[in-house]
Simulated assay, not measured.
Amino acid sequence: MELRQLEYFVAVAEEANFTRAAERVYISQSGVSAQIRQLEHELGAVLLDRSGRRCTVTAAGAAALRHARDALASVNALRQAVDDVNGLIRGRIVVGMVTACTVAPLFDALASFHTAHPGVEITLFEDSSDRLVESVRTGMADMALVGTGSAPPKGVETLPIISDRLVAVVSNDHPLAGRPRTFLADIAAFPLVCLPTGTGVRAVFDQACSAVGIEPTITLQASAPGAITDLAARGLGVAILSESMAATRHDGVTVLPVDDILSPALLTLIWKTGKNPALRELVRHSHAAFESSPEPTQHVHVEDDRDVTHVA
């Protein structure tokens, strides 16, 4: 008994026609007939009734059909298991990350994955969070480190990395500089310097203002947190950044907590569940790397707002 005989038998049983079955398995009709007759001879029973216009299974054929399908399914599972292993020996994994963000545990995960599976090519690229999310959704990227200002993206798996509150950054001679903390109503009384619409921190800030009915005056925008801080240091407005972005102190500014911005920002690793065995392994290495990191926030160096996302 051969697997191809079972395949041909299942094809004829499902198509109820030798010609269509032959087209399905890509051999001649005579070849299908010959192999099924050989199978029937070996089993000692007629499996197919060929007397009518439609070919139907006999009682013996019906009994054999389920087992034939199970056998073929088992063979396919075996092939998939081997393909999974081969996929880890030779393959490619594409990882995206927000621009100018250094996260040591992610790099640790990539390093340990490369050590375990040196035959898998790793491609790493930078982009904005919205484009990275779309890349993962469409399969252009396997995994990405992203941030948004709303709930985590739908249609992907997520691993939150770091929660980060928003702060106000002002020049040392600003009227707010002498306060230990501030509120949205206080900072909204001044011109504001913010990151662009669509970035994580900006979305969190806009949502917080909307929740209390405040319409802030945003006079300047820049996509680099360092530029935002420099503009605030020169007295051009109150800068809105995440706490980690403002962690690199500037001699000319004061950093103030904003007590009524309750939603933090969150840096998140995302991926889409699929059949890629290399991705499954990288996810496992990523979990291990971040879980073994005692203080994840100490490993995160953020230079771009697209590094964060709002807690769901």
Rank of each mutant, 00 (worst) to 15 (best):
A227T: 14
A211F: 06
A11I: 02
D307F: 13
L72A: 03
P257G: 04
A289D: 00
S210E: 09
S163M: 04
S150G: 11
P180W: 05
S223M: 15
E291S: 09
P118C: 01
N172G: 09
I270V: 10
V193T: 02
M143I: 09
G237A: 05
E7C: 07
G149H: 10
V95M: 05
L132C: 12
A104D: 06
D186M: 02
T148G: 14
G198A: 08
S135N: 08
S33N: 07
I261R: 04
G237R: 02
P152A: 13
A312V: 14
A100M: 15
A13V: 01
A233R: 07
A265N: 08
S223C: 14
L65D: 01
E7M: 06
T248H: 13
A73K: 04
I261G: 06
V46G: 04
A177K: 01
A288L: 07
G155F: 12
G96T: 08
L124F: 08
S286V: 05
T248Y: 11
P277H: 01
D304L: 11
I187L: 01
A104C: 14
P296F: 11
G91T: 03
R4K: 12
E303F: 12
C209E: 03
E126Y: 11
P118W: 00
A64R: 03
G252H: 13
I187Q: 00
Q29K: 15
I240S: 09
A289T: 00
P175S: 00
F183W: 06
T19Q: 05
I27S: 11
P191Q: 01
I270M: 07
S210D: 04
E126K: 10
A116K: 03
Q35G: 10
E134P: 15
V170T: 01
E42V: 13
L279Y: 01
E243M: 08
V75P: 14
L47E: 00
V75A: 12
G200Y: 15
V12D: 01
V133A: 09
H299C: 14
P180M: 04
T217I: 04
T229R: 15
A109F: 07
Q207R: 14
I261A: 05
H114M: 03
A21G: 02
L236M: 08
G213N: 06
R50Q: 02
A109V: 01
T309N: 11
C55W: 02
R284M: 08
A21Y: 04
S74R: 14
H299W: 09
T102P: 11
P180H: 05
C101V: 09
A227K: 12
S244N: 14
T19R: 09
W271C: 05
A81Q: 06
V300Q: 07
G91P: 05
F183P: 02
F290T: 00
S163Y: 10
A111V: 02
L78W: 15
T158N: 11
V167M: 07
F183T: 02
A232Y: 08
H301Q: 12
G235M: 04
I93W: 14
R90S: 06
F107C: 05
E134V: 13
G178F: 10
A73F: 05
P264T: 04
G61E: 00
A63Q: 02
P296M: 10
I122Q: 01
Q80K: 08
T158Y: 06
V238E: 01
I270N: 09
